[in-house]
């Protein structure tokens, strides 16, 4: 979670080092011109036209002088990507707030989701500000969690159908929330783990079967000879 503190990109002024060789300055200027997007070694070789050995040596030199840094891109983790030390990788490179080393921080997201969901379940109804105030007051997070991040989490919980976005009408559960304010409410048909209770067809044998398109009385698979049915019967008998 500490990574969140370093997430805001800060640009510093370009430092021009007088001790650069001609090749070094060609390469450095190219990398610097790409700003927070950075550049792949393959593109660098093509654009500078330097011989491979010279190119490798120059790149190493710039690295040792701490003028450039290697960054991971989410598009292609195998490719070596470089950027001037003054820049922080852009959202296109890192993937955004929720990515660490080019990988989606699923543990962090899951932890935040869990906290938000449990808070709303306990409160029944909550606004975004209400949650932020509570988390600040109780020191829930080690690092600062921005309102935008919490909003992202609330939105994904809505998309998960674990909570719903509603407008307060000032009655019942909404009594403490001003009328018209957007708030979040737990869905009544959601179990603790956010598992859905309803849905008429997904658990019906055949409909849930991935082979349904091949299955017909005269098809590759036939309902009369289908072996998956026995599986369904066994499963259902256990439930009964």
């Amino acid at each position: 979670m500490n990574r969140l503190r370093e997430s805001s990109p800060q640009r510093k002024r370009q430092k021009v080092s007088p001790s650069l060789t001609n090749e070094e300055s060609i390469l450095y200027n190219l990398i610097y011109s790409k700003k927070d997007i950075g550049i792949w070694t393959g593109d660098m070789k093509r654009e500078t036209n330097l011989p491979v050995t010279v190119f490798n040596k120059t790149l190493k030199e710039l690295m040792s002088k701490s003028m450039i840094k290697e960054v991971t891109t989410i598009q292609n983790k195998g490719r070596k990507h470089y950027m001037a030390i003054e820049f922080e990788p852009s959202k296109e490179i890192t993937g955004g707030n929720w990515y660490t080393d080019g990988k989606l921080d699923t543990d962090f997201i899951a932890a935040l989701k869990d906290v938000c969901f449990k808070y709303i379940s306990k409160q029944k109804v909550s606004t975004l500000d209400g949650f932020l105030e509570w988390s600040k007051k109780n020191g829930i997070f080690n690092s600062e969690v921005t309102p935008t991040q919490v909003e992202d989490i609330m939105k994904t919980l809505v998309l998960d159908d674990a909570i719903v976005e509603v407008t307060s009408n000032g009655y019942g559960d909404f009594a403490s929330i001003p009328v018209g304010r957007v708030c979040y409410k737990c869905k009544s048909n959601v179990k603790v783990k956010g598992e859905l209770k309803y849905g008429l067809v997904p658990y019906i044998p055949c409909f849930a079967c991935p082979r349904i398109s091949f299955c017909s009385p005269d098809g590759v698979v036939s309902p009369r000879t289908c072996v998956y049915y026995d599986k369904w019967h066994v499963l259902e008998v256990i439930h009964i």
């Binding site: 998309l159 998960d160 159908d161 859905l196 309803y198 849905g199 008429l200 997904p202 658990y203």
Partner: peptide, 22 residues
């Protein structure tokens, strides 16, 4: 929509379900 979404959830998993709902 709820019905179709629940089919997506069962067949393709939670990530696909979220994208579909979005």
């Amino acid at each position: 929509n709820e019905e179709v979404e629940s089919i997506v959830l069962k067949r393709y998993g939670r990530d696909a379900y979220r994208m579909f709902r979005h």
